[in-house]
Design a protein around this nucleic acid. Structure first.
Length: 417
RNA sequence: CGGGGUGUGGUGUAACGGCUAACAUGCUUGUUUUGGGUACAAGUGACUCCGGGUUCGAAUCCCGGCUCCCCGACCA
């Protein structure tokens, strides 16, 4: 894309009504726009990143048998009454509303009940199991206090997968697979080395659930981490019993602030029982389906990436999720060099590389500043100075590493990584 | 939901209860400059969050509401 066509602009100053690093940088760089506290518009740059993260998640979910659906944002009251979750005393951060005819309904905050009910139409035999529908969508939570920019919003973009298995064995096998899939996701979005499986409270049907916590000062959670064993314990369940269960001792753990970037739960029959999701097993006996749920906040992931990877010049986008892979800057007012930059832009596009071409008629310094702020992984400068140094200049945003290249070699250079 | 703070051109800030609400930035036009937000000039742009009140006079003081930020509580 040509940058002159991009309707968003960068800003020199951060808005006064934001305190968090992630919101400040994302707003300054033109990735997001604040609509109200806890609700942000994802602008073209931000949306590209969201879509890239969602695509990674799709790949990882599909690889372990997930099948994507698009759920509804409107939810029926009756299902939640059956499981005892409709009452405001049980779930207090739920947006509820009414139809014109007066019947109550709600805006989706999770989908255990609707998804369980839906699967009743398709599951009746052990032959129908397991099944792993998942959903990528915006959900709503009436937070009493939204905060930390994009990290805790009143609406946010997430993926939720629900597993339907015939028994605990079949469930456990999948649970381990998705745990690994989650780790793959964090690795691919660029925060793998800071993200750890964390033991957290499990609820009714299992002793523990697993959270994925990313070390980050902006986080709301406190975890005790064994760097060596790559295991952490959430402070809320930190006691001698857990330490014993995990064969850890206090001495090998250190305390960190962290952000929860995912949570996987064994639900057992918590929802299949009240909603009567049953199947006939091999012996002709009716049984409840064994369930699990697995959530990962996509917009929050973007926030965590910015919180943990940016530097004093701006955002540093990891390659797999960056809005563009390459940022071409034409510096100076040399007509020939501008043409050369434009040709490079078309070459890269034709090679299937996502490229942003800064073709704007503004001073070089501004283009350089903007490139740092937006944080695209590779910056390619076409200028007289670069020509004198042997062609075009390519700089890695993350490391600052710089090299000069003959323009004809750029495509192959990028394809090889 | 408890506590603290905040609200002024698009953005960031200033202004003792007292002249036509100031500065920077942005934006427009012209000249200039062309590797780290270039320089100069001329323009543009505000019912000072909303509603009451005090006062000769309110951006400024008082009351109520809302907004946004922070701490805490909460967070399938």
């Amino acid at each position: 894309m040509k940058q002159s066509q991009l309707f968003t602009k960068t800003r020199k100053e951060a808005p006064a009504d934001e305190n968090s690093k992630n919101a400040e940088l994302l707003i300054r760089a033109g990735y997001i726009y604040k609509e109200l506290a806890g609700a942000y518009v994802f602008l073209p740059l931000g949306l590209r990143v969201l879509n890239n993260i969602a695509d990674i998640i799709r790949e990882e979910m599909d690889a372990i048998g997930g099948q994507e659906v698009q759920s509804t944002a409107l939810q029926r009251k009756e299902l939640w009454q059956k499981t005892g979750r409709w009452d405001d005393a049980v779930v207090d951060n739920w947006f509820k509303t009414k139809l014109k005819n007066g019947s109550e309904l709600a805006l989706a905050f999770t989908h255990e009940e609707p998804m369980t009910d839906l699967m009743k139409s398709f599951i009746s035999s052990y032959k129908d199991l397991p099944a792993y529908p998942y959903d990528i969508r915006t959900i709503f939570r009436n937070e009493e206090r939204a905060k930390s920019g994009i990290l805790r919003g009143r609406e946010f973009f997430w993926k939720a997968l629900y597993s339907f298995s015939k028994d605990k064995e079949q469930h456990d096998e999948f649970y381990e697979k998705i745990k690994q899939a989650y780790l793959n996701i964090y690795e691919r979005v660029g925060i793998g080395d800071k993200t750890f499986v964390t033991f957290a409270s499990g609820g009714t049907f299992s002793k523990y659930s697993h959270e994925f916590q990313t070390i980050c000062d902006a986080g709301e959670d406190t975890i005790f981490l064994s760097q060596e064993k790559k295991i952490a314990i959430n402070k809320e369940v930190f006691n001698d019993e857990v330490l014993n269960d995990l064969s850890l001792n206090r001495g090998e753990l250190s305390e960190f602030r962290a952000v929860e970037v995912g949570n996987i739960f064994s639900l057992g029959e918590r929802f299949s029982e009240p909603l009567e999701l049953r199947y006939m097993d091999e012996t002709g006996t009716q049984k409840n389906v064994f369930m699990g749920s697995y959530g990962i906040g996509i917009s929050r992931l973007l926030g965590v990436v910015v919180e943990t990877l940016s530097d004093d010049k701006g955002i540093v986008m990891p390659e797999e999720i960056a809005p563009f892979s390459v940022h071409i800057l034409a510096l100076g007012n040399n007509e020939n060099l501008f043409r050369e930059a434009e040709n490079l832009y078309f070459d890269l596009k034709n090679a299937g590389i996502e490229v942003l071409f800064d073709d704007r008629d503004i001073p070089p310094a501004q283009k350089l500043q903007d490139a740092d702020l937006v944080g695209i992984p590779y910056r390619v400068v076409v200028s007289e100075k670069a020509s004198q140094n042997g062609g075009i200049e390519i700089t890695h945003r993350k490391t600052g590493e710089k090299e000069y290249l003959d323009p004809s070699r750029l495509v192959s250079y990028l394809m090889e990584g």
